[in-house]
Amino acid sequence: MTFLSHIITGLSLGSIYAIIALGYTMVYGIAKMLNFAHGDVIMVGAYVCFFAVTSYQLPAILAVPLAMVVCTILGIVIERLAYKPLRQAPSLAVLITAIGVSYFLQNSAQILWSASPKSFPSLFTVGGNKSLGLFGGQLQISYTAMATVLACIVIMLGLTWFTGNTKMGKAMRACSEDKAAAQLMGINVNFTISMTFAIGSALAAVAGVLMCSAYSYLLPTTGSLPGIKAFTAAVFGGIGSIPGAFLGGVLLGLIETFTKAYISTDLSDAVVFAVLIVVLLVKPAGLLGRYVPEKV
């Protein structure tokens, strides 16, 4: 029974990583940049949802879309103001800017909402219960965990369908391969990149809400570590690949949970990164990534 419950915890944590990783991977695949501020967009989404629920008494069904809308706009604005002017700049300059944006968001959150932690309410309850008891109550599955895993699967399938079947999704893939050629097709590359940030940021909001709902704890730095781990998950699965981000996220969540349960809580992050290093040594492009040698 405890084994099963670890599996559920791991899947739910992994689904959060996967949702964040999907945003990372979309932006990386199309804009070819690591948006290190992605984790902090998660935090903003969680705060928006927090205030919508606690100060304005909005139901979750309205608070979550509100957080998504705010984060979508935030993502578009960040891209427009911070990254677009650097489109021709060396990637190191873009990376440093992204780190700067990350701190800017954290500090702004501290000024706006203070550094003291907020106790995030549980958004997913059924009949006042937070979890469903199985086997006569021996196994408890929280409704948040169910919602998280379900959201993750829906998002992964949705993104796969979107990039494979819609005109905008295909234009994104074209931009990810060759921006100049995409322009020669009539594709507005700037708009396409903007849309990618919009999607990634909306997903970040979802991840933020689910994460805070599961761990009921919200700080201006809340998004930072999950952001880095989700980035790890995206690399683990093969950066740029949608199924890769999904697989990487879920595996990372499982590895982390089982390390905490059976090896050591303190070592869990070290084990996660050790696994990443081993995978990258064996498969440099990640589990599902394609290895594309640098063109010379």
Binding site: K170, R173, A174, A180, L184, M185
Partner: peptide, 25 residues
């Protein structure tokens, strides 16, 4: 319309998808 030097087709997309991109506008 331009057929660029070195073709620059979208190698990871199918033939039909490449043509659809040509019809983007």
């Amino acid at each position: 319309a331009q057929v660029p030097e070195g073709r620059r087709i979208f190698l990871q997309m199918t033939v039909e998808e490449n043509l659809e991109m040509g019809a983007y506008t």
